[in-house]
Design a protein around this nucleic acid. Sequence first.
DNA 1: TACTGCTGTTCCGTAAACGGAACGATCGAG
DNA 2: CTCGATCGTTCCGTTTACGGAACAGCAGTA
Lengths: 180, 180
Amino acid sequence: MPPPSEPDPTAVGRRVRALREARGISLSALARLAQVGKATLSGLENGTRNPTLETLYAITAQLGVPLTAVLFEPGAEPTVRGAAVNAILLEVFNDSDATYELYRMRIAPGTDQLSPAHQAGVTEHVTVFAGVLRAGPADAPLTAAAGDHLRWASDVPHVYAAVGDEEVAATLLLRYPRKP
Amino acid sequence: MPPPSEPDPTAVGRRVRALREARGISLSALARLAQVGKATLSGLENGTRNPTLETLYAITAQLGVPLTAVLFEPGAEPTVRGAAVNAILLEVFNDSDATYELYRMRIAPGTDQLSPAHQAGVTEHVTVFAGVLRAGPADAPLTAAAGDHLRWASDVPHVYAAVGDEEVAATLLLRYPRKP
DNA sequence: TACTGCTGTTCCGTAAACGGAACGATCGAG
DNA sequence: CTCGATCGTTCCGTTTACGGAACAGCAGTA
């Protein structure tokens, strides 16, 4: 999977300031309520500091919003994006002999996406709900239409691409077998 | 709104460790890939450090998961909870003369919930989709069934409660007028 | 056995995030 | 105008998160 969208420190500061001003409370007051220094909050809002998880939580808690409200653009789901693939992590199952990660993914038509190889033993399982997907090992990709299911060993570079001009909707199950 | 669910530092560490071990890579290797010290990662996984947003992001980026995957229990939506009310922030609009926060909320039957007063000028607008809601100023609450809409000034303590034994589904729009 | 390479933890000096105090600016009251 | 209060920023000493090195423990090899 490609790297997640970055939480820009200056954008985080801007969102904190916007939420604070919306509530009509001063920087000094919020710092007092959240029990952090005014210098800390000032630096955070101006993007000149690299806040600790603890301080950021203390502030968002006082603003009455979840941490995600300042980390990302509100409404934006916690997404893992690439050029063509847009996936969001739904669940993680920690079984006794493997870990499973369940993603809901959408693949835009027109562009391919190459993912690097995973650890040996890791497998990917895709179920297509809409569109036509071409995915699998880079040297031998498979094709699946709505309702179809694909699986491949992902210890080699693999690709994702939408066939035709319809966006592909699918679920991706990543299976990481436990090391013995 | 009540405080969000807390991101327990030890739980964050446990989730990072679980994700790392699922991928079958060592602590040393992940530290090298993420360009952080081994001591940093070790302390983070064991919950003895209070990580910076920057370091936490560098690590989750290498694991290929969004920040939220380690902050909260996977699958748990970024929710703002209280005894009876379960709300998730959907959107924030920064208009020229006001800020709007849109929540989707569910209210469990049986228990009431009291919210403290907001800033003067703040108004709440609730649209009920299912169930019967009793909400508004603590001294004069209003009642609304599915399809109804409520509004009140929230500069006084206010309550939320489900009437009957059906769960209430509704949207809540909080309006913070801009200071002149 | 000793050696090599790796694991994860601990020690330590440095860099920086922290809270508190001091600062100039702005506002309203007298 | 002066006073007092509060605003947000800046300075500063303390605390602590940081990266690198040293460490013990364990596997595989000669």
